[in-house]
């Protein structure tokens, strides 16, 4: 490509670059800067005092005599967030894959209706959705009554609400469309004649699923898992409401540092730790699926 063509191209995308730079990179840079500043006494930061204290705080506690003691509180919160996000992604996959498979096998007209139905959670406010789950999961709520009625659980209050599982259920509900839609997209692209070919060569339904459908839907499944796992990791409304503050996740920790704890540098450092983890997850996804074969031809 000639030099002038390159610069012309650059000019064409310049507005987009400016917007990305101003609205994304600048705040990020600001956050990075905040994370290496001294915290102000009443929140905020002391703008000219540089320190790595926020990053040290993550793993160590400073004793009275200034020596560092290992503190795993924050690591535990990270570990719990990871665990809950993985559980959420697994639940969403377990529900989302059969849903997407079912949708992709429907006649063309009905598929669009089903896609619309799947996206309905998006149309409701996040708070409303979470309060709805509070009503469903609380003692004496619908879920408990159902379990009692089915005889699955003993006839006593179950305490479903304000547990990590309640958080995971709420997150699964919120992010399910992010799992269903990419899997549906990869299944819809899949040439149905490949499935017929598998049947033709003696594969029953289970083996056609394992040997042909699943491998060809793998890019969609991976995309769905990333799309559910990443926002779940940073979730903060759902753990607050359904976890009752007992199952704090990274998002709640960051929020509390900018709020009650008045430790902006630490909050910024945590946000960066989260961002790093997310970027690593994305990299794994890209390396694994960059050259993945598309379905069909």
């Amino acid at each position: 490509m000639t030099g002038s063509a390159t610069s012309k191209r650059f000019l064409q995308i310049a507005p987009a670059l400016a917007i990305i730079g101003f609205f994304m990179l600048a705040p990020l840079g600001l956050m990075a800067y905040v994370s290496i500043l001294e915290k102000g006494l009443n929140g905020g930061v002391v703008w000219d005092l540089h320190t790595s204290e926020a990053y040290v705080n993550f793993i160590f506690e400073r004793d009275l005599d200034d020596s560092l003691i290992l503190n795993t509180d924050y690591l535990q919160i990270f570990a719990r967030s990871f665990g809950l996000s993985l559980l959420t992604a697994a639940l969403a996959l377990a529900i989302g894959f059969p849903t997407a498979l079912y949708m992709s096998m429907q006649p063309e007209g009905r598929r669009n209706l089903l896609i619309f139905l799947v996206t309905i959670p998006f149309w409701t406010n996040l708070l409303v959705r979470n309060y709805a789950w509070i009503l469903l999961l609380r003692n004496g709520g619908l879920v408990e009554n159902l379990l009692h009625w089915l005889g699955i659980a003993a006839d006593q209050p179950l305490g479903l609400l304000y547990t990590p599982y309640a958080v995971s259920i709420g997150l699964t509900y919120s992010y399910l469309p992010f799992m269903v839609l990419p899997i549906y997209a990869s299944l819809e692209k899949l040439d149905s004649r490949l499935i017929e070919a598998a049947f033709d060569l003696g594969a029953d339904r289970r083996r056609a699923l394992l040997r042909v459908i699943l491998p060809l839907a793998a890019p969609g499944i991976a995309a769905g898992c990333v799309l559910v796992f990443v926002p779940a990791l940073g979730a903060y409304v759902t753990p607050e409401l359904l976890g009752g503050g007992k199952s704090m996740m990274i998002g709640n920790l960051i929020q509390s540092q900018f709020g009650a704890a008045r430790n902006w540098p630490f909050g910024a450092a945590l946000a960066f730790a989260l961002l790093t983890i997310v970027l690593l997850a994305m990299m794994v996804y890209l390396i694994r699926f960059r050259r993945a074969p598309a379905g069909g031809h």
Binding site: R193, L194, E196, A197, A198, D200, V212, L216, P293
Partner: peptide, 14 residues
């Protein structure tokens, strides 16, 4: 015990 050669070949791409 009947096999088919499909018009589009339908080879498994993966």
């Amino acid at each position: 015990p009947i096999n088919t050669v499909f018009q589009s070949y339908a080879l498994f791409p993966h």
